[in-house]
């Protein structure tokens, strides 16, 4: 079933100011998994995503999306950055932010029209934010802002979704709403890759996991590799988790 490789990373090394933050990463992500990337602060989780998406330039190694370079496969990929990476006082509305998801398929110069607006409204409805479409984005709660970001990725109708800490600073209701949408994406055979912090919820939310701490520690199905051994290797202290059956 999981034969197709959606994302392949070979010998990836990324450095800031000549200090490696990711060291020789090899990674294969099969199509249709819902994968968590876990690791301590500074492990390079966000850096890994950004390097795959061409936002950061690696000093060595290569990345392929379904066998081709990211530049050729852009249309297949959607990205949800960390909520804190943007200025929420920017003068714009929820609907407009979601519309930005359509810019990639429009390309340079061409402007969004009625079709793009309709797509954005549908995405807003999927995340339960339709009634807030004209709200200025600073007037939204943290959870609502995260849903807007999710809607913006949904509007791209991609095959692979990269999300950088989508559960950060959201309430329980939003967390459940988001995870339900992610599970729906997986059901539609999309690949979803999430930088995740809450180790407790990994077995419940995800079916695939990558342990990362500058180097790749392990990657594979949650039921096989999410264990004390790998957690200890990743976080450097003795971990005891009880995986719910």
């Amino acid at each position: 079933m999981k034969n197709n490789i959606a994302v392949k990373v070979d010998d990836l090394t990324v450095a800031y100011n000549y200090k490696p933050v990711l060291w020789d990463i090899d990674l294969e992500i099969p199509e249709g998994v819902l994968m968590a990337i876990v690791g301590p602060n500074g492990a390079g989780k966000s850096t890994l995503i950004k390097s795959i998406l061409g936002i950061l330039k690696p000093i060595a190694g290569s990345v392929s999306i379904y066998g081709k370079s990211y530049e050729k496969q852009r249309a297949l990929v959607a990205y949800v950055p960390q909520k804190g990476s943007v200025d929420w006082d920017f003068p714009t509305t929820a609907l407009d932010v979601v519309m930005m998801g359509t810019y990639g398929s429009l390309g340079w110069i061409k402007r969004p029209g009625q079709k793009e607006k309709k797509m954005a409204l549908e995405a807003l409805e999927k995340v339960g934010m339709l009634s807030f479409k004209n709200r200025q984005i600073s007037q939204l709660s943290g959870g609502q802002q995260q849903r807007i970001f999710l809607a913006r990725a949904l509007v791209q109708d991609a095959s692979i979704y990269f999300m950088d800490e989508p559960f950060q600073g959201v309430d329980a209701t939003t967390e459940i709403a988001i995870i339900n949408i992610l599970k729906e994406l997986r059901k539609a055979n999309k690949t979803v890759i999430v930088v995740h912090h809450d180790l407790q919820t990994v077995p419940e939310y995800f079916d695939w996991v990558t342990f990362l701490n500058v180097k790749k520690i392990a990657t594979g199905p949650v039921k096989d590799i999410f264990n004390d051994d790998n957690l200890t290797k990743t976080y450097g202290i003795n971990y005891k988790v009880s995986i719910q059956e």
Partner: peptide, 16 residues
């Protein structure tokens, strides 16, 4: 559109 998206969210602009 390009200036707006890269001003609001440079990461998204780059990925698009």
């Amino acid at each position: 559109k390009e200036v707006k998206v890269s001003t609001f969210d440079a990461g998204l602009a780059a990925s698009l």
